[in-house]
């Protein structure tokens, strides 16, 4: 009896500890494969080097254009996805009737479940030709098209976290605002949204993390050119796209292989930081709620 109790608790404990192990394993393995690169190339040249020619002789491993590629499509995605995602969240939590809510929420979830490769297919084969025609440009695979697809992809993530934040604003606050004679929109934008702001910021950071880490869409839609973009209609090669498309051609342990893991280190650091920041905002929101 006693041993059975102990065993059950111990197994649960071990299972839960695996998450720490997996996270450490991911961080260590990426660093282990990537760090040897920096014996050959210094970190500064790697991050701020403008030339990414990994297969030339001699090769160039500067990832500035890849970083700028990632950042440009991510900013684009936020411009498209944040207003739509936060707007949808406000609509669902503040305006929609409970019946409409019951119908709308599953649709947003369906959007979240669509595999990224199918978004990529849509962007590459349907959206890009349309963009090319409308703007009369030579290639439709560029920052603009990628931003639209990525932006739509992050809507469900932004929206669901924002909605949690909006929903947890206490009812008293709303009623106090109406009692002062404010109408619904004034209440939403001057009272509820400010009260839910930490959570909404967390949802934007979540969207940022999703967009910068997304692989298949950027791989298929961003055009793949490793140069610093000159306009929103320039093709780019974001970090994830370089890793995914080049890893297959490399030999294990080669400089190119290590450089791709080096890119993953940069990506991992960015997402780790954005994640911690997001969790900080979420916990701040929870702490503030206790005051009411």
């Amino acid at each position: 009896m006693k041993t059975k109790e102990f065993l059950f608790k111990y197994v649960s404990f071990l299972a839960a500890s695996l998450s720490i192990l997996f996270l450490l394993g991911i961080i260590l393995s990426i660093f282990k494969e990537g760090i040897p690169l920096f014996k050959e190339i210094n970190v500064f040249d790697f991050i701020f080097g403008r030339r990414w020619h990994p297969t030339d002789e001699p090769p160039d491993f500067g990832i500035l254009s890849l970083i700028i590629g990632s950042i440009s499509v991510t900013i684009g995605a936020l411009i498209v996805g944040v207003p739509l995602g936060v707007g949808s969240a406000i609509y669902v939590s503040e305006i929609a009737s409970s019946n409409a809510k019951e119908i709308l929420k599953p649709f947003i979830e369906i959007l979240a479940g669509i595999p990224s490769v199918i978004y990529g297919l849509f962007g590459m084969n349907i959206l890009a030709p349309i963009v090319r025609k409308i703007f009369n440009i030579p290639i439709g695979l560029n920052i603009f098209s990628t931003s639209i697809i990525l932006g739509i992809m992050i809507i469900p993530f932004v929206s669901s976290l924002s909605e949690d934040a909006l929903r947890s604003v206490s009812k008293d606050v709303r009623e106090a605002s109406y009692a002062l004679g404010a109408n619904r929109i004034e209440t939403i934008f001057k009272v509820i949204v400010p009260a839910a702001l930490p959570g909404i910021i967390a949802s934007i950071i979540l969207g940022f993390g999703r967009a910068i880490g997304e692989t298949m869409v950027v791989l298929m839609v961003s055009g793949g050119t490793a140069t610093i973009p000159s306009s929103i209609f320039s093709p780019v090669r974001p970090m994830t796209s370089a890793i995914a498309s080049e890893m297959g051609e490399t030999v294990k342990g080669s400089l190119h292989f290590q450089a791709l893991y080096g890119i993953a280190i940069v990506l991992l650091i960015i997402t780790l930081l954005s994640n911690l920041l997001m969790q900080w905002f979420v916990s701040r929101e929870k702490n503030e709620k206790k005051i009411y």
Partner: peptide
């Protein structure tokens, strides 16, 4: 553990791919 789980869920899928390749 909770922080690890949240961090895992925010890690890009391609990084999981590289981890799988390496490990």
């Amino acid at each position: 553990i909770k922080t690890s789980i949240n961090t895992l869920s925010g890690t890009p899928s391609i990084v999981f791919g590289l981890f799988g390749l390496s490990v």
